[in-house]
Each structure stands twice: as structure tokens, then as C-alpha cells.
Design a protein around this nucleic acid. Structure first.
Lengths: 248, 248
DNA sequence: GGCGGCGCTTCGGTATACAGTATGCTTTTC
DNA sequence: GAAAAGCATACTGTATACCGAAGCGCCGCC
């Protein structure tokens, strides 16, 4: 999916024209095709866990739920499939894929590398405006950790990484990163307070390196951050044979 | 698009079943959905340059050309759009995007990083079977360069990078790489004999590093290779102000 | 009680229709 | 004669209806 299709894309992007009342609502640009709306809604639902892994996404049912015809639903499903958020099998339909350890490992490997170059680019470009924003997000994240508001942390984490991607000012990279972040969301979302604390300390270190313009350090810390969180997730998933009898 | 949707994916991937005559045609597994076929055909056409940048992809016309209805065409277009091979604007339809220097720079930046970790992984995993294949491809590439058969070089280049991706044994990474390779194809395809020579010398060096298991060196060489070819492309595109009056 | 058949569900695809929107051409107006 | 308005046309977005094929599960039969 193109980045411009996301609902949260800036509405004030266009160049200002002359002789145009400033309060004119540029409605023509706003309304998105239904398949995009459906895709966004579905994505949100899947990321929020409202569709569990393994759950089937039946076109007819979704069409009815959303109050649209099957066509936009199909296109939405295809779009999410190409993002890796749903898995469609020919003539069997779509379902939410489970994140297997092997797949998670692959995703994390790639994401770590990309997060690394993102941080490197951010350090290189060194945009003061975005750095200010990053600082603000960091502050809010730290506060959320301190006050144990784990509910917000997922969103704040996404915000931080998004801003970092923007700082890298590489559209291709930012798009890829967002897709990878979505797909690894289960691995990065549910965490202990300890883990959340670690995450935001990592973020702070990354930002510090970016601010100081240390490209090498930024890249290393960002990549390491992803590897760390990923390893924790994988470790938590792995059966601990010493402590617990294996079942099944 | 999922890797499994490509026509060239191994047809013998599924586990063999018992009690099945060996000559039975498993038509159920074989026939791909039309939208996938159309997408593959379209991709091939675009990469082969049969659709020029800026050319519009009108659904009705394509549907007629392929002898299918509009639905599969739309789905194919959407799939290619999410690969970045076509660009669709709401209510305006799809067209083949031109590769702008800025965009090329972004793609190359990302691709270099990913090619780097691919090579690193290949060096790490060190699969002798794939290394044998890489050697064979390298040999054919060198021969093609020596005998000035530039026509084959594009395909051989794709083959080399594909095999390298397979050696990395990371499906997510391989999929991303293929998509990026497709999108940067214009930058990597038309080259002088000199450039082709350089490319395959790079390949040889990368393979040597991979064989020796030197991860750091492999990653560095692979990333550098992409940057080199990319820079050449960008330099060729940039107007040479000293030699030539700027137009427009 | 296992197995084969049968029907239901769902997907993939076709055809058709129509409203909304973009675009290019033409005409009008000053 | 150029800008504005009007108009025709081309396409997209969406809905609807329908068909065939493939999977899935139940049920009854041996």
C-alpha cells in the first residue's frame, strides 16, 4: 500500500494557491476509495488483535460487516496480503497468519538492518524539527513507562519509529519499515514493565546518538535494539525444557 | 506479492502424497488464479519495457488484451502497485512510474543495505550447494561479458542476486530484494561493456568473500556493489553542465 | 467404525450496470 | 484572443447477480 493511502497522511501537503479562501475544504482529495478504507480498517483490527491468528476472513461476511460489496473487500484483502498481514491460499481464502518463531526471526533480521540504516540516515540528515518531535515522543514514552500506562506504549513505540523513519527522509525505507513494524507487532507489543523500561532506554540512547550525529553509533544501537526485543520475544516463546514438562 | 505466486516457483515444493499415480496432473494445485497470471504477465511486460514510463494502464483495455474481465486486472494492478511497479492515483487509474533520480537514490540506499545483509547471511549459512550454483552463474556471467552478449546479462544478474538471496535463507529478505531489484531494474539493466565487466568483477569478489565465510567483507562488498552501479546510473542521468547546455 | 458420497460454503471469475470523477475539446464571453 | 464556462467522453469505483470449482464436514452405509 502506498503511504499516501493511509488516513493519517497530511492533508496540508499541497502547495497553496492564490485567490483561494483559506477555509476551503479540499474534499476532492480527501475521500479514499472504499477498498482503501476497508484495508485500513482491517489492518487496524488485525493489529489490535480483534482478529486472532488462524481466524478466517470470509469475503461475504466482511462485505456485510462493512456494508460494502465483495469487490472492495477482495481488493483490501489482497492489499493486506501483499503487506504480509494476511495470508491467502488459492481457493481457500484469507486468514490471519500466526507469527511463527522462524518467520519472526526472519522479520527481525531484516527489520534490524533497516532500522539501522534508518537511524544512520537520521543521524546524517540531522533535521532539528524532527529531532524536537522525537524528543517529545521520548518524553511521553518515558512518562508512560514510569506511570505503568502500558496501553499507550504500543502507539508511542510506533510513533517513535515512524518519526525516526521520517528523519531518515527516505520514503521507500519508511514504507518498508512500517510494513515490517506491523508484521512484527505481536513480538513488540505485549511486554513486561521491565521490557518496556529497557525499550525506552534504548530509544533514548538511539536518539542521543542521532542528535550527536554519530552515524555508526546510531545504526548500531538501533539494530541492536530490534535484535534485543526480538530475542526476548523468541526466548519467551521457546519452551523452557528445564523448568517445564513439554506438552503435546 | 507472495513469492509462491511467481510462476517460476518450484512446482515440486509440496510434500509427496501416497497412492497417487505419478503421471496424474495435479491441476488443482497448478492453475494459478487469473489475477496472479495477469500480474505476472504485466510485471514481465513492464520490466521488459513494453510499457513505457508514463503510459497509462487502462483496466478495460488490459482486460480485453488478456481476455479476462476487469476484476482480475484490477487485482493485478493493485498487486503491482504494492510492489511499486505501477503507480495508481485514485480515480485516475494506474500508470508506469518513471524512475526519478531521487527515487532511485532511495531505492538504492535501501537495496544496498539489504544486499549487504543478504551477503552476510549467505557467508554465515555457507550452503555448499548454493555456492556451487553461484559459481556456475558467475561463470556464465563472465562468459557473457567476454563475448559481449549483453542481452543475457540482465537475466544473469537477476539469477545471481536471486541465488545469493536464497543462500541467505531468509524468505522475507529474498522477497523484498526481488521487489527492490525489479524496481531498480532500469538503473541496473542498460550498461556499457565496461560497466558489465565491473559488475561481474564485483560479483566475483562478493562470491569469494562468501565462500571464505568472511561475513563483514561479504556485506561490505555487496553493499558497495549496489552503491557503485547506482552511482554510475545517477551520474549518467545527471546533466553534465560543463559539456552541455542545460535545457528546459 | 471407517469410508465414500453428498451437499454446503466459499472463493475465483464473468458480465453488466451505473454513478462520480477527470479530461480534453468546444463554445461562449469579455 | 485569452480566460471561463459548457459539454462530451473516457475511466474508475462500486454494486449486483450469477456460475463453476474447490474445500470441508456431515451423515449414512457397508
Amino acid at each position: 500500500m502506498r503511504a499516501a493511502d493511509r488516513e493519517d497522511s497530511s492533508p496540508s501537503a499541497g502547495a497553496p494557491r492564490q485567490h483561494r479562501p483559506s477555509d476551503a475544504v479540499r474534499v476532492g482529495e480527501r475521500h479514499l476509495p472504499l477498498h482503501v478504507v476497508v484495508a485500513n480498517e482491517l489492518r487496524r483490527a488485525i493489529l489490535a488483535g480483534r482478529y486472532k491468528p488462524g481466524e478466517r476472513l470470509v469475503e461475504d461476511r466482511l462485505a456485510e460487516d462493512f456494508g460494502v460489496s465483495r469487490n472492495p473487500v477482495r481488493e483490501a484483502i489482497r492489499a493486506l496480503a501483499s503487506e504480509g498481514l494476511v495470508e491467502v491460499t488459492a481457493r481457500q481464502g484469507a486468514m490471519v497468519p500466526a507469527l511463527t518463531p522462524g518467520h519472526a526471526r526472519e522479520l527481525i533480521e531484516v527489520r534490524a538492518a533497516l532500522e539501522g540504516i534508518t537511524a544512520r540516515l537520521a543521524a546524517q540528515r540531522h533535521d532539528p524539527q524532527i529531532i524536537t518531535r522525537l524528543k517529545a515522543i521520548l518524553k511521553r514514552g518515558m512518562a508512560a513507562v514510569a506511570s505503568r500506562q502500558t496501553a499507550q506504549l504500543s502507539a508511542l513505540n510506533a510513533e517513535f519509529h515512524d518519526a525516526l523513519a521520517e528523519a531518515g527522509s527516505n520514503r521507500v525505507l519508511a514504507d518498508l519499515m512500517r510494513s515490517l513494524r506491523d508484521r512484527t507487532a505481536p513480538a513488540f507489543a505485549p511486554m513486561t514493565t521491565r521490557a518496556a523500561d529497557k525499550t525506552w532506554k534504548d530509544h533514548a540512547a538511539i536518539l542521543k546518538a542521532v542528535i550527536s550525529g554519530n552515524e555508526e553509533q546510531s545504526a548500531k544501537l538501533a539494530a541492536q535494539h530490534i535484535h534485543n526485543v526480538g530475542s526476548d520475544y523468541l526466548a519467551a516463546k521457546r519452551p523452557r525444557v528445564k523448568r517445564q514438562r513439554r506438552k503435546q
